[in-house]
Design a protein around this nucleic acid. Sequence first.
RNA 1: GGAGCCUUAGCUCAAUUGGUUAGAGCGCCGCCCUGUCACGGCGGAGGUUGCGGGUUCGAGCCCCGUAGGCUCCGCCA
Length: 591
Amino acid sequence: MYRTHHCNELRASHIGITARLAGWVHVRRDHGGVVFIDLRDREGLTQVVFRPEENAEVTEIAHTLRHEDVVEVSGRVAPRIAGTENPKLATGEVELVPSSLRILNRADVLPFPLDSDPSNEDLRLSYRYFDLRRPHLARNLRTRHRVTKATRDYLDEQGFIEIETPILSKSTPEGARDFLVPSRQTPGKFYALPQAPQQYKQLLMVGGVEKYFQIAKCFRDEDLRADRQPEFTQIDIEASFVRPEDIYALVEGMLAAVFREAQGIEIPTPFPLMTWHEAMDQFGSDKPDRRFGMHLIDLADVFAASSFKMFRGALDTGGAVKAINAKNFASVTTGQMEELTTMAKLYGAKGLAFIKVENGKWQSPLVKFFTDEEKAALTSQLDISEGDLVLFAADKWEVVCEVLGRLRLRISEFQKLTAGSTALDFLWVTDFPLLAFDAAENKWNAVHHPFTRPKADDVALIDAGEFGKARAEAYDVVLNGVEIGGGSIRIHEPDLQAKMFAALGVSEADQQTMFGHILRAFRLGAPPHGGIAMGLDRLVMLICGEQSIREVMAFPKNNRGIDLMSQSPSEVDARQLRDLGMKLAGEKPQA
RNA sequence: GGAGCCUUAGCUCAAUUGGUUAGAGCGCCGCCCUGUCACGGCGGAGGUUGCGGGUUCGAGCCCCGUAGGCUCCGCCA
């Protein structure tokens, strides 16, 4: 037995007993005679004191201890000398006076100190196993465990069963780029790693499972971000005979359980609902951050008869004129204003019109175009007062919303509007568009995925070829401006599914090759079903207050998909390639 | 594919307008130190300033290229 207690266990009540502890040498304070070490394990710290007069031999060895050596000590639990108790430590009333010291392993000089946050993330990632010792990361991993545990317990109580689905699965053309795995036994063919267990979970519904979930690893071969890794984890849920409100209630209950277990806080349910159109119209985002105002205000009424061509032109061609009021941001710097203008153009605006209110005056190149009535209407609708910065956009509705939505978020960063906020603002965004036209590919793509059910009222629009107007029976759950989950009610009828594939430009033959199994399944009594997938990494990231999902994953990859610790991906030897019937294409010829 | 920021000792950072031998704290090594808890004292080692080129009498600093890291856009059904 290495230990009888952990390092956050001994208290005054243990004084007099013999205890054995094991752990890492956190700090050593060597006074030449007496030697103190703070012994650390995952639970905490306990001070160990070596006294030459008590045990000269053991103290002699203690002089050689260094940071992060792994030791086992056994001895008497003693009260600290009066006046030397440490109120900062839970174990600060006592100390261990060892009669034996066993060095289990010595540590080399450390690559970086554990007691501060090194900013050098690639160094941390290279020594991830070492970085994980820091209480910060250890706490995140434990929180993640609490979240998955609470999820499993809750879904189990609700009658859901966890089912594993294949990792070696089939490539599909829709969606993200697949990671491919060459097949040795069928040369020239490939498995794909799942982007999500989407088809399997629907087939489980056809299989009569009715209530399925999985803490599922998913893989997408796309470029990375702070909140995107090539492999990540979803809480994947599917149920039969459900409507959206059944999914809402289930997820609200699940998140309530998660926040109760992981954070000890009660979140208000049910979450408010907002349609996609409302979200775009008021916040310029399909995942609105409602922790601050700065709403997009529609000014069509104000400028309906305006003499200002930019605004009138947009309105006359069926577009929109909107503005946001960045309260107290007339102090915007030139650099910030340039950045906002660049952003506005990047997202499709022709320019960025503004009003700065300083010293009681509207500083703006626009004012001369406005009538007194228009100024009065602006003042009241936008609640304009001294020190404000008002930004306008006039264009197609989609462009206006997108531009102002992006500016709104950037300004909130400039003004630190959500800094230090502990608000938890949940909402459902519903009624997403079913299809979106991709100009680059010159085709319609599914906004959610090709199995998403159109709203019953909108099936006729698909029949009429008005793809852009059809809405989906789809929903996202949003927390503080971050999409933490999304799902939909699915198509369960083969003819409707075929109609969707046709709209997506998938030929009859391709439908059979790529989706034949699911179309056949739908002909054998598929129940109505739907579900949702929650991004576990993002959820835990928000709960832990982190800016990156790397901080809540044990072994993340860097932003080029490289594991700096193990140096994967790596080359393989020729034999492995030969087994797979593969050859590297080699260097590209010079252009 | 594109944009921005960054790279100086093991770590965190400094180095005036381009100017002497590139410094500090922590860590490391040695010696001293019997009640500390960021223990303390004295001494020491440790640098191809990411790499390559250029400008200059002289480059950590300016210019070009390149590698790596981070963030963002595109992409992510």
